[in-house]
């Protein structure tokens, strides 16, 4: 079953072609990494999937519906965890924001919704901070709260925009373990300009740079990089990729060129 179905999508902004001829199918329970250079259209693609932007041409279906209808079943974790830092709101109230029924204006805080929000925080290891103001939490902690808020919407698809930006390298491994835990029930889509997201947990990779190349395996081939970054693997980040020592192959062998 496909949860996301993008067909022949173009997006033009201010006369500039941002995305062109994009096709993408995301299967249920997939763990997709969308990578590509900055300005390549990753975040635009994300906003199209969320229904915040309208495609110039082509169709998008999420869970068989238009993005705008489907958006309540997408859990969205924003890139910027520093938004409105002085805003008077506690971690629990942020999560409750995801918990409430989007169709209702006046919502009463029931014990059940409080319980559900607390358990979402618990899952992110943030229950003890539930009563703290968002501004007093660290960037990584705030991000956990935002993920808890996304989970509180009981989503079918979890979308994260550049999630590792506010986490140190050690935290990133832990973070991806957590995502793969979540991925047991929910389809996960991660956007990153960072090649490190190609960790062992990712099941497939989509490279976006105006056009989209999809690989249903967690590997980056040399020609994908060529198409995406206009330079070779070695130039991008030789040390990180070679010396990181993950127990899996990040890059395809040079000789084994895909057709």
């Amino acid at each position: 079953m496909a949860i996301v179905e993008v067909k022949d999508l173009d997006f033009t902004y201010d006369g500039q072609v941002v995305l062109q001829g994009v096709d993408l199918t995301v299967r249920e329970s997939d763990f997709v990494a969308i990578i590509g250079p900055n300005g390549g259209g990753k975040t635009t693609l994300l906003k199209l999937l969320l229904g915040l932007l309208t495609p110039t041409r082509g169709t998008i279906e999420v869970d068989g519906k238009s993005p705008r209808q489907a958006s309540p079943c997408i859990g969205y974790v924003p890139q910027n965890v520093h938004i409105n830092r002085s805003f008077p709101i506690t971690a629990l109230d942020v999560v409750l924001m995801g918990e409430r029924d989007p169709k209702k204006r006046v919502t009463r805080r029931t014990a059940a919704s409080r319980e559900a929000a607390l358990s979402a925080l618990e899952r992110m290891d943030m229950a003890e901070h539930s009563d703290r103001k968002m501004g007093t939490l660290s960037g990584g902690q705030r991000q956990r709260v935002f993920i808890a808020r996304a989970l509180a919407t009981s989503p079918k698809l979890l979308v994260l925009d550049e999630p590792t930006a506010s986490i140190d390298t050690k935290g990133q491994t832990e973070f991806y373990q957590l995502l793969s835990e979540i991925n047991k029930d929910i389809t996960v889509l991660v956007v990153s300009h960072d090649l490190l997201v190609i960790s062992r947990y990712v099941k497939s990779v989509a490279c976006v740079n105006k056009s989209l190349h999809y690989h249903d395996q967690a590997e980056i081939t040399d020609d994908m990089l060529g198409a995406m970054y206009r330079c070779s693997v070695e130039e991008i980040c030789p040390v990180e990729l070679v010396a990181h020592g993950l127990p899996h192959r990040v890059l395809a062998e040079h000789k084994e060129q895909p057709q």
Binding site: G51, L52, S71, P72, I74, P78, F87, G98, R149
Partner: peptide, 9 residues
Amino acid sequence: YDEEFAQIR
């Protein structure tokens, strides 16, 4: 607090 999230919801 978060206009984008509000719109998605």
